[in-house]
Design a protein around this nucleic acid. Sequence first.
RNA 1: GGUCCCAUCGUCUAGCCCGGUUAGGACACCGGCCUCUCACGUCGGCGGCAGGGGUUCAAAUCCCCUUGGGACCGCCA
Length: 472
Amino acid sequence: MVKVRFAPSPTGYLHLGGARTAIFNWLFARHNKGRFILRIEDTDRSRSTEDSIQEILEALVWLGLNWDEGPYRQTERMEIYKKEAQRLLEEKKAYYCYCTPQELEERRKKALEGGRMPQYDGRCRGKTGAREGINPVIRLKVDQEGETVIHDLIKGEVVYPNSQLDDFILVRSDGTPTYNFVVVVDDALMGITHVIRGDDHLNNTPKQIQLYRALGYEPPQFAHVPMILGPDRARLSKRHGATSVLAYREEGYLPEALFNFLVRLGWSHGDQEIFSKEELIRYFSLENVGKSPAVYNPDKLLWLNAHYIKTGETERLAKLLVPFLAREGLIREGAETDMGWLCRVVDTLKERSKTLKEMAQMAAFYFREPREYDPKGDRKFLKPQVLPYLEALVQELEKLDDFSEEEIERTFNRVLERFGIKLKHLAQPCRVALTGKTVSPGIFEIVSVMGKEAAISRLDKAIKHIKAKPEA
RNA sequence: GGUCCCAUCGUCUAGCCCGGUUAGGACACCGGCCUCUCACGUCGGCGGCAGGGGUUCAAAUCCCCUUGGGACCGCCA
């Protein structure tokens, strides 16, 4: 059975690259009816935080990436690593090294200056003598002869000369295991069949393969996914702005939009752009993952988000919108909201919102009357000439009991006929009067949704405003 | 510096494995239509095989080189 894992290190939030790796693993597991395991790589105690773990879990849940096992934490598995390290020591496949970090740093610097490879020279390999006052590290005896071949499911066959490898550290001087050690032990012991990860790990793979062999475990299949790059073609990072998954939630993105966007960064299925989760599970294959890195394209994400808002279920969107409305100060946090009415609001806005945040901003006029009129709209549409139209409209609206869109349209038409004018001559002044702006959803919709009282009071206010103009 | 990876419109990509396409789609951009504004929708446009050598009747596709970009070379992961 296929078994894959996502293994983030909790030293920060879940970023887009990590999220995509998680998505690929998840899809691969679901497609193959295998298991998806979550493992927290927290062996770096100084940089790992509990907050970070919680944030990562929350982001995964938000994206809908449910896991079948875990989350395991490596800090809870220390005994296992200790035992494995001891075994390697006993089998003479690993040894203690008493070189100090300072010494190593110095040698590294010298090597770099001399144009040589900055790698450990293996000087403690044969020695048994401990140095006083120094806690040793444990290093693996790496075979530097020949080459290591990786049969990568994405990159193909990759050959490394073993002369590039050095005796890397398995256990630090404080007794904690390093990444390259625990990742191998865990993947082996957890029965991981496919390691799908960023191709920044490709260079670590030959080392890890040697470690698998030393431990007597069969290496898994590897699949190295190309990186996500920023607009400057450097690896995507905080420098490029919001790269945290949860930040996208705060900005009003839908999880399915981000999911769809991320999966298409590097993977494709012919010409199709929009995928449901079911389709992705059905179609996903490592063979269709590209080899070249992808540049992050926020415009496309925005387009996808707009698509999912447009086609999303209104009730769900309304619920999701509430916190954004609160943030805009349009409703009070925790206050009762008339969801039926809010659904009507959302229905008028979902066709034209790219994010929930934008939707909340566009919804402002439903919640409060315009504080001021858009200067251009005021000048162009709130002119004395339109006074009779607006006054007639108010009179007609007063008579209405049924404030449905259809009735409102009929009402507008009566006014248009009376004056022999076109809709645009009434709609625009009306729009500015009701919303303060020259752009909004359809005029009949907004009149209907804001209701009789609000509509009439705002029209009256605009009428007074026009009358107060000097030229009136 | 060494090793490894990568290279189709500005961006994401199909096509490459199994040579013969007017090199296809999507985002963005520009224009038309629709229309009460905006948006949606729709129609059209702009725009690409990094360069050079081979192999071949024929190369985006196969081979080599160059160039460009990226990653790793940590008691980080």
